[in-house]
């Protein structure tokens, strides 16, 4: 079996206190393996996004733990958490979330500068990443000058900037039309198979589920079922 890259034990998240408390997650224990293409599905309000945020170190659990590469992220200082996000996790969002005032190339370069690369080195590597997602020729454009699909490709290149152990994609096709969505899915799958990128995505998209290695079904804050597909 492949190496475990993310492990959660009895993970819980509660919003609010006392009687008004909402239990978004109720004890989720799971393992995610290096190199797999995993989808997390569940109706809205099921805790899918909360689980996603916990795995990505974007939010702190109220119970249980998340280990990324055997590091318990609840123990990290804000500085160490920033370091983890920079080096170990790549994020892709439904709304692309590019830095609007910077060009495609600058968006991919930024995380590399945070990682301590020199500007020359970073630009050279960023161009390679943009070529990898098929946008090398539009490196000089700002997000507003790119289509949704192109913006999402830049976001994917940016997520891969520091060769992260996992790439987290939150509804990556949610704001795209069918054809563009399919292209993004194909791209993620290709990166997963050819570059060995671990992809974890929260999604509703059936096409996305179709290419997944495993599917986590979340319901009422619990991991209800794990579907293995081969």
């Amino acid at each position: 079996m492949a190496e475990v890259v993310v492990r959660t034990t009895d993970l819980a998240k509660q919003y609010g206190e006392g009687e008004n408390a909402v239990h978004a997650l109720n004890g989720v224990t799971c393992a995610i393996y290096s190199g797999e293409y995993l989808s997390i599905v569940g109706p809205s309000g099921s805790g899918k996004s909360t689980l996603f945020n916990m795995i990505g170190g974007l939010d702190r659990p109220t119970g249980g733990s998340v280990f990324i590469n055997s590091v318990d992220i609840a123990q990290l200082t804000p500085k160490e958490l920033a370091f983890l996000r920079c080096h170990t996790i790549g994020y892709i969002f439904q709304t692309f979330n590019l830095i609007t005032v910077r060009t495609a190339l600058e968006n991919v370069v930024l995380p590399m500068l945070f990682a301590g690369l020199s500007p020359e080195e970073a630009e050279e590597r960023a161009m390679k990443k943009l070529d990898l997602v098929g946008l090398g020729h539009r490196y000089h454009h700002r997000p507003a000058e790119l289509s949704g699909g192109q913006q999402q490709r830049v976001a994917i290149a940016r997520a891969l900037a520091n060769d992260p152990a996992i790439v987290l994609a939150d509804e990556p096709t949610g704001n795209l039309d069918l054809k563009t969505g399919q292209e993004i899915i194909d791209l993620l799958r290709r990166l997963n198979q050819e570059e060995g990128v671990t992809v974890i995505s929260a999604t509703h998209d059936h096409k996305m589920l179709g290419v997944s290695d495993r599917i986590f079904h979340i319901s009422d804050g619990k991991l209800e079922r794990i579907e293995e597909r081969t």
Binding site: N69, V71, F83, T100, V101, R102, L113, G116, A165
Partner: peptide
């Protein structure tokens, strides 16, 4: 993939010009 266990935590921000360029881009655009 980078391994968080083997990479030492670097306790420094990127050089000053990275923040400066970001501020200028934000004003210009």
């Amino acid at each position: 993939p980078n391994d968080a266990r083997t990479t030492a935590i670097k306790d420094t921000d990127p050089p000053f010009w990275v923040a400066w360029n970001q501020a200028l881009a934000s004003i210009r655009v």
